[in-house]
Design a protein around this nucleic acid. Structure first.
Lengths: 403, 403
DNA sequence: AAGTCTTATTTAATAGCGTAACTTAACCAG
DNA sequence: CTGGTTAAGTTACGCTATTAAATAAGACTT
């Protein structure tokens, strides 16, 4: 009953161009022939599309190497300087802005710490806008060569005529972040949930490479998850995140900041873990406190018990995802997730095994993220890249070199 | 990072044909012009495709009616007798085989009760095979005009080189049901989880009509769910069901027949509800026992409490789905689901509200299924219809009238 | 009753696509 | 320098959907 739409011969071309470009993007220097085999397109079509891409400056020939008795293959490569993308990570403690070239090598970065008690919209908007100017200036890149900007924010992102952000943690309520930012920059803007952008980063460049069905869990102070189905990040009907953190694991259990009881986040979020421990810990931020708690587990029975419980609850939460989504891979990320996973991964796996059905569990692997805790900005920047590969975000025709 | 494949101008045609056919299928007598507007295809293309469909005998002109000063529109209609589909429902208490025409009007039905203690593979295979012959004979239809057969089974269906069924309830372990059936019939065969087939039935013809993102919950003796994303039923990487019933709602809670503890099914499955009540109830099957329990709630505090708890747990389970999937619509089905829902729907809604995030909850409606408890066979038959609409299962070229 | 208007459908012309078969290019071995 | 081999580019072809014009089939007007 899917509401489908006709397509024309032009869509066909765009799709095949996108297939080709994506294939090249994820497996860099390749010859036309390789591309033909990989995509299934005929050599002639590959030639046609490649000619177009070269003409537009998106693809460049990267010196022919290789020979085996015949004409050497000409290697093709995406021109990393065709355009640039910017990823913004709006975190609970800072706003980070990073500028990448097309191949995702970082060209500039700017950080703006936030007062943890103050998440006013205007403060953050201003930080982002100055960050944008800063990274472009820093990298010596004009706004016209930036393709798009991706922004990862905590909380629910509601798509619609105007993108609205509902950030429980920030006390944001229907904030028209897109409109606010647009007033300060003319660049195309895409906003998404931070857990989802990080998930996409791991999917494309980290522990998720090659997976078609995966779940990336972001455990920090709060808890979120990104669900990848058929190679694409899931978005609900309201385009809001997979709010895994507020899944109930104990009916009538601990109170959660969302107002409900027994949420997963109320057990395995860093804040909740520290709260469950109750006693004071060294370190003045959650990160060092949690690290301290983990260290203490070797000597303190109380600390060990807290961590054992954490592994149990986390395993249960993962088991639910396994049963519901049958992912090939589950990736644990976020600063707390990485910290916990390092020590507790075997226990987490065991808990997940016990609470999920045997079959789906057998098809899943549970791993740690590879991109570290700061992949949100990188992931946010994949949003523009995705558009670019789909041909949705072709560069503006003006002032583009070689077009 | 989706592994995409090129498409050709022929795929384009097949897709557009499918778009047109589906559009007509779900909104029956329509003129070419209406179809053109609905699908976005140009009038000329509609004419072309329709000519082809008429030539193949799939579409027929259903008398022109309508006039308004201009040439009257010729109404088009799908020829219900172009071919037939068969849906098989393998339930816990019986095997049901139903034969439908293309427009899903039932033409014949056959029921084979099962001994509840005996779910041997061979018994069921035999029941299905005799059922197939019976319905075809009964409806006076030759096997050659049956397009495909859809089978809905309980448990996990694993896709692969050979479809395997893992039926926890039946004690089935990697049963090659497809192979077993194929030895008895030459007709194309598709096997899927019963909860999913019922979900598709509700989606196409019941309470889910028009929804793009929905969840259909099947609550019987056990608990399952079917998740619809973008108008299509979700299948995990192993193609197994959304095993919602074995999602944990109470860590360390009641033991479940799956071996884990605290599963949703251990609270809201009919068997679990009766078990939680503990006392004997009138009626010799679960169905009448549960009905009796619901009746008693008016007078017995113990019964009322059990039902209140059931509403709570069910609401929690739904809240998890709301948070994870953001469906527009949630549909409660299955015989127990319908029985419970009739009485408890307000309480269930309230529990779901309390345990889900405000925003996704606001976008969801929770309703009862409209097709009754026996929609599994109907749903199983939608599988062939889906293939037919996609052009995947075009009729065999031989002995087709009018081609 | 004939002409005109209105709308639905069909026809003809056009541009774009991918493919298959063929041609050109580049390199190596002898 | 020639023949063999592999890669890349070119051409002709069959398809596709679209646009614009033509035709069909009634209803309304005068």
């Amino acid at each position: 009953m899917l509401e489908r739409r006709r397509s024309t011969v032009r869509d066909l071309r765009r799709d095949n161009r996108s297939v080709l470009l994506s294939s090249l993007y994820f497996d860099q220097p390749r010859s036309r022939q390789d591309l033909s085999e990989a995509t299934g397109l005929s050599p002639a079509s590959v030639s046609n599309v490649v000619r177009e891409l070269i003409h537009e400056g998106i693809v460049v020939e990267a010196g022919s190497v290789d020979s085996d008795g015949g004409r050497p293959r000409v290697l093709l490569q995406i021109n990393p300087d065709y355009g640039y993308v910017i990823g913004v990570d709006v975190g609970e403690t800072r706003v980070r802005v990073e500028l990448f070239d097309l191949m995702m090598t970082e060209r500039a970065k700017a950080d703006y710490p936030l007062d943890p008690r103050e998440h006013g919209v205007s403060v953050i908007v201003e930080a982002i806008l100055t960050g944008l100017d800063a990274v472009m200036a820093n990298a010596g890149i004009s706004p016209s060569s930036v393709l798009e900007i991706g922004v990862g924010v905590p909380g629910i992102v509601e798509d619609g005529p105007e993108v609205l952000v509902h950030g429980q943690t920030f006390g944001w309520e229907s904030v028209p972040l897109e409109r606010l930012l647009r007033s300060g920059t003319g660049l195309p803007l895409y906003i998404d949930n931070g857990a989802k952008t990080m998930g996409q980063a791991e999917l494309w460049f980290g522990a998720g490479r090659g997976a078609q069905n995966a779940v990336v869990c972001l455990i920090g102070s709060g808890v979120g998850a990104s669900i990848i189905t058929n190679g694409q990040t899931r978005r609900g009907s309201t385009s809001s995140a997979a709010e895994w953190g507020h899944t109930t694991v104990v009916v009538g259990g601990r109170g959660c900041r969302c107002g409900s009881r027994g949420c997963l986040e109320a057990y395995i979020g860093a804040e909740a873990i520290l709260d469950r421990y109750g006693l004071p810990l060294p370190g003045d931020d959650q990160e060092s406190a949690l690290a301290a708690l983990i260290d203490m587990a070797a000597t303190s029975a109380a600390a060990a018990e807290i961590l054992d419980d954490t592994a149990l609850y986390l395993g249960v939460g993962l088991a639910d995802l396994i049963n519901l989504f049958n992912p090939e891979r589950i990736i644990l990320g976020g600063w707390a997730g990485l910290l916990l996973g390092e020590r507790l991964l075997p226990a987490i796996r065991e808990a997940a095994r016990q609470h999920s059905l045997r079959h789906p569990f057998a098809k899943t692997s549970i791993e740690l993220g590879r991109l570290g805790p700061d992949a949100v900005a990188l992931g946010a920047a994949t949003l523009p890249i995705e558009h670019f590969l789909n041909g949705t975000a072709s560069a503006r025709e003006n002032d583009r070199p070689g077009s």
